[in-house]
Structure formats: structure tokens, C-alpha cells
Amino acid sequence: MFGEGILSVKCKKKTRKKLKKLLRWMREQEQELDRQRAQVLSALEAEDLSGVWVHPTKPRSKYFGERLEMDASSYVWIKGLGKCTLHVCIDDASGFLLGLWLEAEETLHGYYKLMEQVLGTYGIPLSIRTDRRTVFVYNKKGEADPAKDTMTQFAYACSQLGVELRCNSDPDFKPKVERANQTLQGMLPFRFTMEGIHTLEQANEYLQQSFMPYFNELFGYATDYMEGRWRKIDSVFVECSSEKIRTILAVLCERSVNKGSSIQMDSRFYALVDHTGRRIALPYHAKVTVARLLDGSLYATRKEQCYALQRIPDRYAFSPQVDPEQEKPRKARAPRPKMPDSHPWSFKRQMQFKRSDALMKSLEPCYKSPYETQYA
């Protein structure tokens, strides 16, 4: 491509400058370039005037986990599925990919899955940088007044964890993840094709188990040259328990109890059940806060009381008066515990007894009288 004067979209600044110098020399020698090379040269010369490739150099963070960057990239990642959205989380200090999650669209669930990977593997970071999507920040009146801001679900989860969430629409505010999106767009579609991946479930499993360790080993760095010697990048992650991850990464909403002592969610009715399995009847119009966890389970809280939500079916699945009687499913018996070999009734001891019994019977004529039929 370089010999033909073709500009690659993934080429580095050094290659662009070298190509521009070569095309200028060719223009001086030949006095005229073909159409394709002339267009490439004009594009390269226009970059110096427009400043397309000009990005200010910034220092990296000092500690691992001090600043995380999150973003989502819409692209044709898997052939045949159309455009999907890859949610990406990268560390600024080390360049490690800390989380990848592929979904059909950019959603809160996708960013929650990133947080689940980060919290479960590394811990609680110090700060997160994102763009100004409504998933992260929402101005009710379109103004930048903090007093009029409404805290989103993701921002509330970050505040519960003690993570500083900073949002800005400028791509230079989070350059690491913006550059990582370009690298991933050049790698992942071909790797998905080579691995025979055709569904989102297969893609997410491959990303977490195989691709992220490979990417971090290839592009990440756990050590840095500081103060005249190589040092390991220290971490500021704080350990987070699995129970805390499960309860904090939830979607919260408020519901009112109807006259049937139930609440409605997604056009379905749910009954409130306490820890003993007994259904609870709350007053009409009582307000409860419903939490939907990442695994899909639903819980409701009211006045420091927690209830599980049990779905109420729309109609009975069986009529005892019309439908024929159905045999009740038999309860599966618990498997019997395996008897140890040292027990006198074990299979091993029984086989030993049979062998010794056969031996004693074969030796019986040697030490017994003809009138005795049993040995001592």
C-alpha cells in the first residue's frame, strides 16, 4: 500500500509523514501524479491546515485503577447480526482492558456488566470517565446547573461504591478508550469469524475468557520506567464483596400497591413474599422500591423491610374439575451416602470375606473331622 501511494486508515503519524514526503518528491520528479496519488497527497496536505490528527499529549495516571474510561462502539462486530454495540472499559495507567460486553444496543445493562467484571476481578476503582450519555448524566431542563441534575441509576451505583463519575462530551477527555475502539474494530470482527462465533452469547464468552487476556498481554504494561528504573504500577483498587456487587448493581424503580395487594412490573403482577414464604398484604397505594438485580431477580423494600416478588400467573394451568387427574410428580430421593471401605458392610469388606470364606472351605478337609460340616 505504501509503494502504491495508498493511505491506510490505520497508519501511524510517522507513516503519513513519510508518504507525504515521498509523494511530494514524485510530484517534483514526474511533474504530474496519477489521480489516486494526487488525492492522497492533497488529503495529507490538508491535515496540516485542519489539524485533524492533532491531539494534545497527556500524561498517564500514576496508579492502576486511579482512572477508568468507559465507552460504547457501534459496529458490525459479527457478520450477519448487523450493527451491535461493544461496551468497553480500559485503565488509563496500564492500558489493560478491564471489561468487554457486547449487546444489540448501548444500554444500562451493558455498563452494569462492565462494572460487574471490574468489581469482581479487580475491585472498586477511584474514578470513571465517560461521555454525557443519559445512562450517566441527565439534565431535566437541559441546563448544566448541578442543583437541577437528576441522578441516574449508574451514577447512584457509583455514589454507593464511592467512585467518582466524571462525564464530558469531548473525545480527548477519554482518549484511551477512543483509541481502543479503533483497535478493537480492526481485530474483533476477523477473530469472531475465525472462531466461528455467530451469537452474542458466544462472543461475550470469548471476549472474557480468551480475548481480554491476549489483548492485555499484547498492549498492556504492568511496569513503567519511573525515576530512572523500572517499577511496578501500584494499584488503588479496593476489594468488593460479591454480595455488595449483587445488591448495588441493580435497577431501582418505585411502584404502588394495588387493591389486590400486588404490584405491576412489565405488564405482569407480582405478590410480595417475606423470608418465611408467606404472602404479605400491604395497604392500598403503599409505595415500595423495586430492585431488579443483574440475574433478573426482583425484590421490593419498604420501611427497611425486604420482600421477594413472586409472579402471579394470569390463569390457572390446571383445573381439578375439568382436566383429568394428573399424577403428582414423585419427589426425587436423596442419593444414599457412599459407605466407606473401612465399614464392615462395605463392598470391599464383603469381597474380602467371600475370598477368605472360599479359602477356608477349601482347607476344611485338612483340619476338620468327617462328622463336622462347619469350621470354627
Rank of each mutant, 00 (worst) to 15 (best):
Y270N: 02
S241N: 04
R255W: 00
G260T: 02
F190C: 07
S235F: 03
E164V: 15
R279W: 02
L218I: 02
D224P: 00
I248W: 05
F211T: 06
L282F: 05
R268S: 14
P189N: 01
K244E: 13
C167E: 08
G186H: 04
V257T: 02
D224N: 04
K176C: 08
K141C: 10
D170Y: 13
M194D: 13
S241T: 07
M212C: 06
V257H: 00
V251D: 15
E195S: 09
K232V: 09
P175Y: 07
G277S: 05
S235H: 06
Q153V: 07
F211M: 04
L188K: 12
E178A: 05
I280W: 06
I245W: 01
Q264S: 13
E227G: 03
K140C: 15
E178F: 03
G196I: 03
A271N: 11
Q264R: 06
F215D: 00
K140H: 07
G228C: 03
W230E: 00
G277A: 03
E201Q: 09
Y225P: 00
Y284P: 02
N258R: 04
Q185E: 09
I233C: 03
V137L: 10
R268Y: 11
F173I: 09
A180Y: 11
N139K: 15
N204I: 01
T247V: 14
D224E: 13
